[in-house]
Amino acid sequence: MVASDDQARIFETGYRPYHGTRLGVSHSVWALARHTAERIMGLKRPARYKILPFASVIIAYLPAVAFIGIVALIPNGRIRLSGFIPGPGRYYGFITAAIILFTILAAPEALCPDKRSRFLGVYLSSPLNRSTYLLAKAIAVVGVLLLVTLGPPLFLLIGLALENDGPRGFGAYMGTLGQILAAGVSLSLMFGAVSLAIPSLTDRRAFASAGSLLLILGSGALTGVIVFGLGGPKDLLALGLDRLPFELALRIFTLHGLPTAAGGGLARASSAPLSTAVVVAASIGVTLVAAAVTWWRVVGTEVTR
């Protein structure tokens, strides 16, 4: 069949001037945040880059899937009454490792390659400046962290509710939902801030991940030794970064976790819980200090010298 003249179309027009819409800086921030989140999750990259982030996410959701399955299979009430199924507040105890693993992977992937490949200079040649660049990176890191800090307890809540084993009444349900949101966001913010600080100091992902792990676990070990081993003030426990974010989450659920006295002759600290004020103040302080370090480092990074 031969097309008539009025059916002719030009399919290849080549490069041409762009006269369309140009969106503002907020669009640039969002575009960079989305690109960074995709990069952290290994999307649009070879399969090997997807293994660790997806494994961490799966590990974080597995207990929730198991608990919901148990509730679905065993008659309602018996398991719950035995205390075997944790509420959303206690759920973090099951996924601490997954959250920390995801944290030490995410932030280095967000910051280090840009510095190492010097793509940061290309980013800063766009309408972004160092502050908006960092904002986009923080949104990406905090956003993907929500996958493991907010998603699993939310999934558990919804699963239990569908099995008629969730909070009783609309008010209680909404209250728990609010607590989950607050806890998930606070965990992501704090872990996000802490985990961005270390990669801002280096351009090597491996060093950044190792440094983040050392900071998170090392601070917990060090403060534990000072408080329980040397009899230091128990408020120092609030500087243990492996415990502080989770302690804040527990407080949001009106639960207490710290201090975890070791027991025996070496335990000289009081087993009384830290005040919520100390936990909140420490959380805010740690987050602000970490954010300040990151900002200072990114703002000070030289490009196109």
């Binding site: 140009r22 880059y49 793509f119 290309v122 309408p127």
Partner: peptide
């Protein structure tokens, strides 16, 4: 300098920068 992420397709890099410059 060599500033392109090696594991990303050329089209994705170029599109990303175009988006950063405000294009939908």
């Amino acid at each position: 300098h060599e500033a392109l992420p090696p594991d990303v397709a050329a089209h994705d890099v170029v599109r990303h920068l175009a988006e950063l410059h405000g294009l939908p």
